[in-house]
Design a protein around this nucleic acid. Structure first.
Lengths: 156, 156
DNA sequence: CCTGAAATTCGAGGCTT
DNA sequence: AAGCCTCGAATTTCAGG
C-alpha cells in the first residue's frame, strides 16, 4: 500500500511540510508532478491528515504545559467525556488510557492562574470525578513526527 | 511584537501549514507579498519554528502510543538524561516535570513487543532509576496547535 | 508517470507613514 | 525605518495524454 518512495516523501514532509515538490522530486529522483500526485493520493488515503505550523509557545504567552489525569464515572467504552474534554480551549490532546476509567490530557495555558481556570472548567463536567495534574518545568523535545525510520532494537 | 494580523496568520498556518499566501492574503485583506513578508519575519523571530505533516499512525503501523514517567538519579537541574531520552527512536516528547526528579515522555511503537524493547533501551541508561508506563487505548484528540484564540473563562 | 497551461510564489523596486 | 503595494520571472499545480 505504501512503498519505499512514499515513505521517503512522508519523512521529508514530516520534517518540513513546506518542502517544495521540486526539492522532494530531486530527493526521490522523479518529476515534480509525480511527487505531487503521490502526495495527493496519500492525503486522500488518510495517511497524511494535515499540515501544521509549529509555534514557539513562549513567543505567544503560553509558557505553561501540563498533563492531567482525569478520572470519570462514565461506563467503560464510552468516550463522551473525552469529546467534552477535547472541546475545552487549551486542551491539545485527549487520550483514553488503561487502568481505572481515565483520560490523560495535554494542556496549554499562559500561566498558573489560567491553568487553574481550565481545571475548574474540567472539574465542573458532570462525569468527571477528579483530576491529577503534573506541570512541565522544561520541555527537552516535542515533535509530532512519527518514527518512520528505524525503531530501537532489543539489543540482546 | 505580534499584532492582530500576525495572530490570524498564525491561526491559519496552525490549522493548515500549506495554505497559500494568496488564500491567507484574502483572509486578512492584504497583498500576498505582504503576507509572505510577515511569515518570513515570524520565522526569523522564532515564533514559527517549523512546519510538520501530520500522519495517521495506524496507516504506518504505529498503533501504540504510551506515556512513560522516567525517574532518574541525576542532580536537580541537569537535563542530561533528557537529551539521551530524546535521542531514543520512537520518543516523540520529553518533558522534565515537577515532583521527584523525573521526565514524562511520549512514545510511539508498532506493538507491545516494540514498546517493551524501547523501554528496555531506556531502562539501560545509567541514570535511569525506574519507569512507569501508561498505554493509550484510544486517542480522542491530538494536535500540536496552540490555543491562540480564546482561553477558558473562570466562569465565576 | 510525463507534457503544457493556469495559478501561485516570492523577489525587486516604489509609495506612504 | 517600517510596512504595504505592484509587477514579472520562476515555480507549483492541475488537466489531459
Amino acid at each position: 500500500m505504501i512503498d519505499e518512495i512514499d515513505r521517503r516523501i512522508l519523512m521529508i514532509l514530516q520534517d518540513n511540510a513546506r518542502t517544495s515538490n521540486a526539492d522532494i522530486a530531486r530527493a526521490v529522483a522523479m518529476a515534480p508532478s509525480a511527487v505531487l500526485e503521490r502526495v495527493r493520493k496519500l492525503e486522500r488515503k488518510g495517511v497524511i491528515t494535515g499540515y501544521e505550523a509549529r509555534i514557539d509557545p513562549s513567543k505567544v504567552e503560553l509558557d505553561l504545559t501540563a498533563f492531567t489525569f482525569v478520572k470519570t464515572d462514565e461506563p467503560v467504552g464510552a468516550i463522551d467525556t473525552g469529546q467534552q474534554l477535547a472541546g475545552v480551549p487549551g486542551v491539545q490532546e485527549v487520550h483514553y488510557v488503561a487502568g481505572t476509567a481515565a483520560y490523560l490530557i495535554k494542556v496549554r495555558a499562559p500561566d498558573t492562574r489560567s491553568l487553574a481556570d481550565l481545571l475548574k472548567v474540567i472539574g465542573r463536567l458532570s462525569t468527571v470525578r477528579d483530576t491529577n495534574t503534573t506541570v512541565v518545568l522544561q520541555t527537552v523535545k516535542e515533535t509530532g513526527a512519527l518514527p518512520l525510520g528505524a525503531l530501537p532494537q532489543p539489543g540482546e
